[in-house]
Computed example of a mutant assay.
Amino acid sequence: MVTAEVAPPISASAADLVKKVTMLKDYVDAVNFTDNPSATPRMSSLASAALCLQSGVEPVMQITARDYNRMGVQSAVLGANALGIRNILCLTGDHSRLGPEPHSRMDIWDLDSVQMIWLLRRMRDEGHFLDQREIKEPPKLFIGAASSPNASQPRFQIIRETKKANAGAQFFQTNLIYDVDAFKSYLDLLDKAGLLNRVYIMAGVTPIRSAKAARVMNTIPGVKIPQKMIDRLENSADPKEEGVQIVLELISGMKDFPINGIHFMAVGWESIVPRLITESGLQDRRMGM
């Protein structure tokens, strides 16, 4: 399976979003829409996913617990499902202090991602709201969660992934992978915890355009770019092309891993994704092909 991420526009115009979705249409199984990343307001993930469906592409709607209380989560998911959106990626969300001032309230976190996963699973499987009222037509959902192989010591991260799977997560979308050996060790731990037979794994990748960008990305929690890759970018006559080659090598290095697909997070460089999919041979791994 192949998916790609698109950040909704900081605008009321959908033209650029539809253009990107159309460009990716013949290359991916689904397009994933972020939900106010870096605590910065954008077009809603729900609206973006609905526009994606109208363009004939399967959407994955992200929903951040940061921006919703329990009433809002239940309402948003019912509305999304009524529009035909069934894939939901549950995130806690970047902290509000990362966003532009004036900041949102920082002392209100009604739910985290694990609690939201449990809530949506219960709505789907048991047909009840959190307050015990019956849902006459329960939502049909495929529930996902983020996983971060490098966020903390692996044994602690596996505990968190286990909580998400126990709550009802059916697929994991990983943070960016730049060390295939470390990722393999993480997968081995998931296997020992019995999770590989319970959830689908989508490995996250993205090309880096420069050594400077790599250094900035290395400050993001959960992202670890080896120094040797930064040196490659630094010494390359064409850093952008070097970044492309690094991603192709990473995908090749994971081809025999027990994962279910690749998720591209191109961060404003969505135009490179079709090339990456074609040259990596991933187009033949799309569902239905």
Rank of each mutant, 00 (worst) to 15 (best):
T278Y: 04
A39M: 08
A213V: 08
C52H: 10
D191A: 13
S252R: 10
L120T: 11
A82M: 12
K164A: 14
T64N: 13
G93Q: 02
Y200H: 02
E126Y: 02
I108G: 00
G168L: 10
G168F: 01
H95N: 14
N69I: 12
I85A: 01
A211R: 03
I259F: 06
S185L: 14
M289G: 14
M287S: 12
R42S: 06
Q115D: 09
Q54E: 12
M23Y: 03
N260T: 07
L176A: 10
A50Q: 03
F257Y: 13
W269S: 08
E161N: 15
D67C: 04
P258C: 06
S104F: 09
Q157R: 15
A169H: 10
A203P: 07
I220Q: 07
N218R: 05
M287A: 13
Q245E: 06
I246F: 07
V223P: 09
L17K: 00
D110I: 15
G99I: 09
E137C: 09
A182T: 00
T206Y: 05
A30S: 12
D26I: 03
A165Q: 15
E161Y: 12
V77T: 01
D284T: 02
M254C: 15
D16K: 10
R133K: 12
A7I: 05
S13W: 11
M265L: 09
F183A: 08
T174C: 03
I108F: 03
Q74W: 04
I88L: 03
R155I: 03
